[in-house]
Amino acid sequence: MSRPARATAKDVARASGVSQTTVSFVLNGAAGHVSEETRERVREAARTLGYVPNGSAQALRKGASRIVLLNIEGVPTGSSLGSYIRGLDAELASHDHVLLVLHGHLSSQALSDVAQAVSARAVIDLGDAGRADALVTDAETSLDAFSAQAEVPVRYLVERGHRHLANAMPDTPELQALAGLRERLIRQATRSAGLPDCPTLVLPTGLGAAAERLRAFRAEHPAVTAVLAYNDDLAFVTLAAMRHLRLRAPEDLAVIGFDDTPHGSLFSPALTSVHIDAEAIGRIAARKALGLPAPDATPEPARVIVRESA
């Protein structure tokens, strides 16, 4: 037996003898210019027909749509970010919400303007967790989840006899929000492990410039035997600069990346990297953005994918 068709705003308009626009105004509480008699006629028709406004209209009446904004300005693309977005998108979709990803350069005001224009339910701003804006929902937690795994590669290197570690960071200003957080956490992890201070190697992406920077860094810090790179891309730059200087990994300098990109195994030497359960982190972020309890399942612990470079 077929289910009766659900009443629509068009049906309510026909039954009450008004336009669909008037029905929309009345049922969304914006009918200041409509007479009380007409309002009551529309409401009565809606009750008789069993009309229920759709979720989007209800959300807009409350001042929020079913859209969640994600700003990824300054966050390098890679396996972890892609998995995070997939988890975030899938969890939001399961609760009838839509994810809108922004990746251009946006000021705090511009981000706020976009959020207001679409009546965003929440904004997750990975571009700058330091923005003290009421629209930003738990961005710091997401950034921590990406970055707070610093103790995993530190412990791995210590177990292999390394005592003097360096932290390789990019020299691109747009990546400084997440890079700065990673740097602080790596320093904290090395201190907790009882290691000497962890100097920072800032590397440009050009091969020649990176090789010269690495040469100068090794002259200044000859005791360093291992480098923890900000991500896999910077680890590749480090390895390329080493090859340019005729240095071997891991014999002369061990290198470990972060992100476990698929092509890490194709590099020579194959890149040792840190893998995180970014999809689960994205699902947790989605539930927090919607004000829902965190899922029962927790993300898998970060782990080192052991290859040849460290």
Rank of each mutant, 00 (worst) to 15 (best):
R160T: 04
D133H: 00
E308F: 09
V12T: 06
E300Q: 15
R6L: 13
L99F: 02
S265P: 02
H162R: 08
R246K: 13
L100K: 01
S56H: 14
P196A: 09
Q109L: 14
A179P: 01
A249K: 04
P293R: 10
Q116V: 13
R218D: 04
S309R: 03
Y230I: 08
A310V: 04
L178I: 15
L165Q: 01
E140P: 05
D89Q: 13
R287Y: 03
V18N: 05
R184D: 11
A90E: 14
Y51T: 07
G50K: 07
R163W: 03
L81A: 06
A297E: 14
E44Y: 02
E300F: 11
N71Y: 03
A302E: 01
A168T: 10
R41Y: 12
L201G: 01
A209Q: 12
G127Y: 00
H162F: 09
A241K: 04
H33N: 10
S147M: 15
L253H: 01
K10G: 14
N54P: 08
P4S: 09
L99W: 02
F258G: 00
S80E: 12
R191V: 12
V123F: 02
D260R: 00
L60R: 04
S35V: 11
L228P: 03
D233Y: 13
L178A: 14
V34H: 05
A302M: 10
P153G: 02
L92K: 00
P196M: 05
L99M: 04
H95I: 08
A168H: 08
V202I: 13
L292P: 05
I305K: 07
A189Q: 03
E91G: 09
Q20V: 15
I124R: 04
G264E: 05
S265K: 12
E159F: 04
R163D: 07
V274P: 02
A30Y: 10
